[in-house]
Amino acid sequence: MGLSVSLKAVPFIIIMANFILQRLFRSVFTVLAVITIIFFLLNLLPGDAALLGGDLRKSQNEEAMEAVREKWGLDKPVPQRYFSYIINLLKGDLGISYRTSLPVIKLIGQSILPTLKLAAFSFIISVVIGISVGYIAALHKNSLVDFFSMFFSIFGISAPRFWIGLMLMYLFAATFRILPASGYGDGAISYLILPAITLSLPLISFLARTTRATVLDVIDEDYVRTAKAKGLSMKVVNWKHVLRNSLISIVTVGGLQFGSLLANTVIVEKVFSYPGLGSLIVDSIHRRDIPAVQGCVLVFSLSFILINLIIDVLYGYMDPRINYS
């Protein structure tokens, strides 16, 4: 008895803070593990990093190879390189790019903004359209609207983003000539439209399907039946009871997709020659620029972990039934 009373006396804010701290702690471990795995993957697997870092022709000249290795510190043993990498990371130093001889952090700094802009813009489009379509489809279950939106969405999930991008480019840039085919155009909105639609179509489809399924579940709940039985108008029931209660799980599922949206900028940026983090990582892979690849992978994974953490905490905050321990 006494225990349950004292448990209840703990303010919500403290439970919440405790929960957030725990998740934060766990995330730090995940981050460290990800950094380690990526480092060893890129530094231990077959292929001489010095050869990869430099020009392939240099590999025939043993002296030149030695010079390259020494220049990038590749002559030192891997564990030593790992520890100096970690220490540099803590100082905010991601190393020097082999290709450009610029600090990797600078390269990432230049390209992260276009990527974030693209991802955020696409996410907003996806949430607004995806949830609306799914909600309307659910309210008109088995109607023609429902059938078409669900057909469209399974197609949207199955079509590769790069193909959607190419088709849109063909239609709107090559045939009708109303939008620019590729590039960044100093950030002009017209250059953002096609990449953003391309990036969001699969997410729109996914959210439409999830929303429809969730809303159909919620419609069957007791509290919705009660609300209807009370004589509330359908409008009030649909907005206040059905949509609101569906949103919690949609937000969770949808939020987690923001990470995959960010990762898929890699494809979309390459299709539209859009100068962001995705283009940077692909170009760096082609040029065997290991420090730059490592830096980009790190940024993608860190944002992925951060987003998951935020969703986790938000979910805990929104749904009081969640167990915080």
Binding site: L41, L42, V297, F300
Partner: peptide
């Protein structure tokens, strides 16, 4: 969980970059 923290396409890219 660690594997899930690296998006599939990024992990695929990284492995292909090495191999």
């Amino acid at each position: 969980n660690v594997m899930l923290s690296i998006p599939a396409i990024i992990l695929g890219l990284t492995i292909m970059a090495v191999m």
